[in-house]
């Protein structure tokens, strides 16, 4: 068993979780603000980019991917592929209607 093994894996402290949570709240405030601007396309692109950044934070800290290794990290790829493929197929409808 190459992956696994509790030793050598750093533990994330509660302080870090709290900090990340505050960061996420801040980003939420930012996306609400951006959505309220009279900025045309930015109104949509901005919050989407911010949401993507938030997702990375959640995956890295709350879902422990920062400290995981091996196979467990690769499992994320399955979710990512599923997301991209299903998104692309939905757009094959929306974009050509």
């Amino acid at each position: 068993m190459s992956e696994g093994g509790e030793e050598g894996r750093e533990r994330t402290g509660y302080a870090t979780y709290a900090l990340v949570w505050l960061g996420l709240m801040g980003l939420t405030w930012l996306s609400v603000t951006v959505a309220g601007l009279e900025a045309g396309a930015l109104k949509i692109a901005g919050p989407l980019v911010i949401a993507a950044i938030k997702a990375v934070f959640v995956l890295a800290f709350f879902m422990h991917l920062k400290t995981e290794r091996g196979l467990i990290r690769w499992v994320v790829v399955i979710g990512l592929i599923a997301f991209i493929v299903s998104g692309a197929l939905v757009f094959s409808d929306v974009a050509y209607r």
């Binding site: 599923a82 493929v85 299903s86 197929l89 094959s92 409808d93 929306v94 974009a95 050509y96 209607r97």
Partner: peptide, 20 residues
């Protein structure tokens, strides 16, 4: 997991999506 659109051929989804 890639076939779900076959429930929507007559729902007003695009022809391109229908073919796929």
């Amino acid at each position: 997991s890639l076939v779900w659109g076959h429930h929507m051929f007559v729902s007003g989804s695009s022809y391109t999506a229908g073919v796929i």
